[in-house]
Design a protein around this nucleic acid. Structure first.
Length: 511
RNA sequence: GUCUCGGUAGCUCAGCUGGUUAGAGCGGCGGAUUCAUAGCCCGCAGGUCGCGUGUUCAAGUCACGCUCGAGACACCA
């Protein structure tokens, strides 16, 4: 069984913004967690490269659309490298493989008798090249962007019979697990209950797209094209591409993680398209929230857009990951506040976890010849062991239900409990009496072991920080043993050498 | 306009099917300690739980009205 997780296919109109990074980081953490848990993960990401906007952006730049797409796609690829994103598939909708899938899929949908030629009517802004929905006093209504009167337009388009799938879609979205979070689910249910209309899947005025077979001047509408990227990515063999191949390789997707703005396409249009093609529907569509900055919407007009590259170079990827994954509940909007960012990184990562590692290692080195002490007296009623087991169980439960913030807090709580344990036991006082040596060795072993578990649990969330912790505990992480097995208490080897401790993360300062 | 969700300590939020003195983290203040990254640990915060009415022996927790905020209402990656 494979586990398929997808980011949206990002529109190559511009380079990645913080929102794209956010979505992708979440997927990356989930993918890492699932892999460590032993699942065969296919983590899909990529770019959506067709459509009028791109055609126009390229022409404004005076370059060929393909060149423009290549350029932006490369920036995305570089960005994923910079952020250490462990994707398995990077889809480009301009690839030959993808085009093949779109054609095959179209044939299936057509065979189901779900395609017909119709007329798209509506008030149209030539500047936007978009239909506007029923503005008041349409003939005199001016487009707010272009200040021009709208034109009535009849355009011949291919339509997809979405209406045919009304009841099947209703059944699908009535399942509580299909759309998350539940606030978004209500919106979709409400929308669908008003009755589904067929939607157009081709354009006549767009040359930059995949041509509809046998119909001149028609290209596929970007959504019809782009959504199929998830399926084309699932086919592992680039030579033998077919929908059947994708299905064999594990389709459907387990989760489409997307921004809340494109939920409808994923939770309504997409499942219907798949039904029509006789394919299985995704198991879950999760619409996450948007990021604001210091309480304000980010936007070009406000000039307050946060540049992800700047964050990366200034704070490092571990700090940004921790803030976005730990401090923002998946599904809710999140606010990026500089002061809070600094506070959280310093408190959680430097003071609580970093300092725990440092003080623990330091005591062990000082009193046990730079090594991990013996653990011969491990008590049966070891409170830290209990805390650790409980933490691991809760952490897994939360991760599996995509509550990454809660999983992260589980780790933090174990670190807090470990610090507390030290303060209660006060080994620095006990060690003054030689008689207590054996007791102290047990205490120190326990805190080191707890710290090892903390490091392991951080692996999906903060891979680099995790390996720094592992390194300072003597590089115990063993790829040959399963992660789950290594999370068991007592795997830390007595007598192994501890290197000189170093801060695992630099403290940040207020701007 | 119709509908959905929210308004709880300075900030971010928990508070399940109504029931002892309304909680956590961060910030702020004080204390104790030294193994450690001026850290960790302990104590302090006296918040009309948006406003009003009602149901009830009992409401932050239910109902209605109002107010403020976010969002959805068909093709905006």
């Amino acid at each position: 069984m494979s586990f398929i997780i997808t980011t949206p296919l990002y529109y190559v109109n511009d380079k990645p913004h913080l929102g794209s990074i956010y979505t992708t980081l979440i997927c990356d953490s989930i993918a890492r967690f699932k892999r460590l848990s032993g699942e065969n993960v296919i983590f899909i990401t990529g770019v959506d490269e067709h459509g009028l906007k791109i055609q126009r952006t390229a022409s404004n730049k005076g370059v060929d659309p393909q060149l423009h797409c290549d350029e932006i796609s490369n920036i995305f690829l570089q960005s994923w490298k910079d952020w250490d994103i462990t994707y398995n598939k990077f889809v480009r909708t301009t690839s030959k493989t993808h085009e093949y899938f779109v054609n095959e899929f179209y044939r299936r949908v057509k065979k189901s008798d779900d395609i017909y030629m119709g007329v798209q009517k509506g008030w149209y802004c030539v500047g936007c090249e978009e239909f506007k929905d029923n503005p008041d006093n349409s003939p005199t209504y001016k487009c707010p962007i272009h200040k021009k009167n709208l034109e009535w337009k009849n355009e011949e388009n291919l339509f997809f019979k979405l209406s045919k799938y009304q009841s099947q879609i209703e059944d699908l979205i009535s399942q509580p697990s299909f759309i998350q979070p539940k606030e978004r689910r209500n919106e979709i249910i409400n929308f669908v209950s008003k009755g589904l209309n067929d939607f157009s899947i081709s354009r006549t005025n767009v040359s930059w797209g995949i041509s509809v077979p046998d119909i001149e001047n028609h290209t596929f509408y970007v959504w019809f094209d782009a959504l199929l990227g998830y399926v084309s990515a699932t086919s592992l063999d680039d030579k033998d591409t077919s929908l059947q191949e994708s299905i064999k390789n594990g389709w459907p997707a387990d989760i489409h993680l997307i921004g809340k703005d494109i939920l409808r396409f994923h939770a309504v249009y997409w499942p219907a398209m798949l039904l029509s093609a006789g394919m299985e529907m995704p198991k879950k569509v999760f619409g996450h929230g948007f990021l604001t900055r210091e309480g304000q919407k980010m936007g070009k007009s406000l000039g307050n857009v946060l540049d992800p590259n700047l964050l990366l170079s200034k704070y490092g990827k571990e700090a940004v990951r921790w803030y976005l994954l730990k401090d923002i509940t998946l599904g809710s909007d999140g606010d990026f506040q500089n002061k809070r960012f600094v506070d959280i990184i310093n408190n959680d990562l430097a003071n609580t976890i970093g300092n725990l590692l440092n003080r623990t290692s330091s005591m062990s080195r000082k009193w046990f010849e730079n090594r991990v002490p013996n653990n011969e007296n491990l008590n049966k009623d070891n409170t830290l062991e209990l805390h650790s087991n409980e933490t691991v169980a809760n952490y897994k439960k939360h991760f599996n239900s995509y509550e990454l913030d809660l999983a992260a807090n589980n780790i933090l709580n174990l670190a807090i409990n470990t610090n507390l344990y030290l303060n209660e036991k006060q080994p620095w006082i006990l060690i003054k009496d030689e008689e207590n040596r054996s007791l102290v060795s047990t205490i120190i072993y326990n805190v080191l072991e707890s710290t090892r578990i903390i490091g392991l649990l951080l692996l999906p969330l903060l891979p680099d920080l995790s390996s720094k912790i592992d390194h300072q505990l003597g590089s115990l992480y063993d790829d040959k043993k399963s992660w789950n097995e290594q999370l068991n208490w007592g795997k830390l080897k007595p007598k192994s050498i501890l290197p000189v401790p170093n801060p695992i993360i630099d403290k940040l300062e207020y701007e």
